[in-house]
Simulated assay, not measured.
Amino acid sequence: MGRIICCGLGPGDPDLMSVRADRAVRAAGHVAYFRKKGRPGQARRIVEGMLAADVCEYPMEYPVTTEIAFDHPDYIRLLAGFYDEWAERLARLARAVDVVVLCEGDPYFYGSFMHLHTRLQGRVEIEVIAGIPGMAGCWNAVGRPIALGDDVTTVLMGTLAEDELEQRMRNSDALVVMKTGRNLAKVRRALASAGRLADAWLVERGTMPGERVARLVDVDAAECPYFAIVLVHGQGRSEATE
């Protein structure tokens, strides 16, 4: 029997992949990866030029992304069917060969593969290769420590309700806001209400081609790319200055 190897690729720059991930990708005979219809896929872009010439590729195309609200029953139904189908296809394939599933960031940190991971339990051997989370690549792009000393760091989803975003922004030192995209205006309002907007940074396409780092107050756009994170750095004291 083969295995399913979920390979964490890191934040986007191929140079930030682990040695173990690099080795798995270059040795792969079968690779699967998520992508939006009509797009090459970010995970596939990261490994461009690394795959064997005779590799078999299995692009897993989402049936829906932003066309329907993520909490709409149709969205939930379509995605559930998509994950069911691909879990079955990968399980069948892995009866004979190893399959490397490419995953941006770290698979265990909001990774799409986890929807397959749950469905594949007990059916096939699974190996997960850790990757640098995208947020780590983003705060390194800013060039400042995200947290010091006893700072509390909170990771939020921009899809949360505005009042919940504001509450959690008030009650933490350092902030990471993922899934900004079309939620950028809402995130900005919540930060302003929480008194944190002046300290916020927007990092678009962190570590990738086209990276942009800017203070959020200087950004006029109401939306940003899918691969974008808002950061508010903690103000804790470092041991060296205490």
Rank of each mutant, 00 (worst) to 15 (best):
D84S: 01
C6W: 01
A43K: 05
I229M: 14
I146G: 03
V217N: 10
L78W: 07
A136H: 06
V142C: 07
A161K: 08
A198S: 11
A228G: 09
T154R: 11
A221G: 03
P14F: 12
L202G: 06
I76N: 05
R3L: 12
L165T: 05
L90H: 02
H30F: 11
G149W: 03
V152H: 04
E61M: 13
G143E: 09
A53R: 12
E162M: 14
R215S: 08
G158W: 09
L216D: 01
D163M: 11
Y110V: 13
D218W: 05
G8T: 04
W139H: 11
L184M: 15
L102R: 02
R44Y: 13
A228E: 02
Y62S: 04
S112Q: 11
E223K: 06
G236I: 05
Q235K: 05
T180V: 15
V128G: 00
C56H: 09
G158H: 06
L191V: 02
R144V: 12
A96K: 07
C6A: 15
A174W: 11
D220G: 02
W86E: 05
M60W: 13
L120I: 00
L148Y: 11
P40Y: 07
A28M: 01
T180G: 14
D150K: 15
A200F: 07
G10P: 07
R168Y: 02
D163L: 10
R168P: 03
L93M: 10
G158K: 03
I132M: 12
I146E: 00
V128K: 02
A32E: 02
F82K: 02
K179F: 07
P133D: 04
Y108G: 01
D173L: 08
R26F: 14
V97D: 01
G49I: 03
K36P: 00
P209Y: 08
T241A: 13
A136I: 13
G158L: 06
E67S: 08
I229S: 10
A136W: 02
M178G: 04
H30T: 00
L160Q: 06
A91K: 03
G105C: 11
F109A: 08
A190H: 01
L51R: 02
A32P: 00
V187I: 02
Q167T: 06
H30M: 10
A91L: 08
R45S: 07
Q235W: 08
D220W: 11
L78K: 13
G195P: 01
G38N: 05
